[in-house]
Design a protein around this nucleic acid. Structure first.
Lengths: 150, 150
DNA sequence: ATATTTTTGTTTACGTGGAAACAAAAATAT
DNA sequence: ATATTTTTGTTTCCACGTAAACAAAAATAT
C-alpha cells in the first residue's frame, strides 16, 4: 500500500525535524538557549520546582539541570528558597524578569497550539478520531520499543 | 474539541520522544554510537559518499562528519578513495566489517518499518488517507515555521 | 537510638557537535 | 592565461549534556 509507505515516510520526517530542532544551539530569547527557556517554563508551571523534578520533566539529568539553574540564578531569572523543615531540597521560583521570559515563551507556545487547532479544523470529528487513534497507537508502539531496549 | 487537544498532546509526545532518543549517547552496536551507525548507513547507501553529501543527508555540519568519518576510518569500518581526475573530493565506502554494521542496522530499520506497517494494517484505506493528509499538513506547517525563523 | 539505604544536589571528566577560521583544489569570470 | 569565487575537507575553540563520583540530608530498617 503506497499510502502506508508514505505515512511512514512522512512520520519519519517529523521525527527528523524534532531531532534537528533540538540540535539548534542558538539563542531563542535574550541570550537564552532552548534548554534555559524550557527550564524557566517548567519552573514557572510547577509547584515547588526543584532540580530533580525539573530534570524529570525535561528528560535530562540532574547534573544538567543543576548547571542550568545555576546559570538562571546568575542571570537573576530565578530565585531559590527552602522550606524550614527540609534542609536538603532546594526549590526555585521565577523572578519578575524570569516571569517575562515565561510569558513570552507561553505566547509562542499558544500560537503554535492555535496553528495546529486551525489545521485540525479542516478535519471532521470522525477524521480527528482516526488521527488520534493513529497517534496513540504509534506512541504506544514507540514506548514499548524503548522499553525493550532497556 | 477534546479530540483536537488530545491530538496535539499526542503529537507533542512523539516529538519529545524523538528528542530524547537523539540524546542517547550510548553505543548501539559494537562500540558505535548512533551518529556513527547513521553515518555508515548513509555511506553504504550513497554513490560516491563524501563529507559534504553525508553531512547534508544527516543534517549535520561538515566538521562533525569529518570527525566521525575519521573515527570510522580508524576503526576500519570505512575506506576513503579519490577519483584520479579530482584531487579535492574524498569518497568513502564500507569495508567488509563496515558492511556488517550496515546490514545489522538495515535489519533493525526494516523491522521498525514492518511494525509500523502492521500497525497501519488496522486502518482502512480511507483512514490511511486521512492520516497521510494530516501528517503532510503538519509537515508543511512545521517546515514553514522553521523557514520563518530563518 | 543507631545503622543502613535512599534521595537530592553538585562537581568532575569526558564525548559530541556547532561555528568559524583555514587551506587547498576546482569552478568561474575577466 | 590569470584572477576571483566557490566548493570541499580539516581543525580549533567552545558550549552543552551525560555519566559517575561525591557529599549531605532524609527516610527507613534494625
Amino acid at each position: 500500500m503506497s499510502n502506508a509507505i508514505n505515512i511512514i515516510h512522512s512520520f519519519t520526517r517529523i521525527q527528523e525535524r524534532a531531532d534537528i530542532f533540538k540540535h539548534h544551539r542558538e539563542e531563542i530569547f535574550a541570550g537564552l538557549n532552548l534548554a534555559e527557556v524550557h527550564c524557566i517554563a517548567k519552573i514557572g508551571s510547577m509547584e515547588y520546582a526543584n532540580v530533580t523534578k525539573v530534570a524529570h520533566a525535561m528528560h535530562m539529568t540532574r547534573g544538567a539541570i543543576s548547571k542550568i539553574s545555576k546559570k538562571l540564578l546568575n542571570k537573576q531569572l530565578v530565585e531559590s528558597y527552602q522550606k524550614p523543615e527540609n534542609n536538603k531540597e532546594v526549590y526555585f521560583c521565577l523572578t519578575t524578569s524570569g516571569k517575562l521570559i515565561y510569558d513570552e515563551h507561553k505566547v509562542c507556545h499558544e500560537q503554535a497550539k492555535l496553528r495546529k487547532l486551525k489545521l485540525l479544523s479542516n478535519y471532521s470529528e470522525a477524521e480527528q478520531i482516526v488521527i488520534l487513534r493513529f497517534l496513540e497507537d504509534i506512541n504506544q508502539q514507540q514506548e514499548q520499543g524503548l522499553r525493550e531496549e532497556a
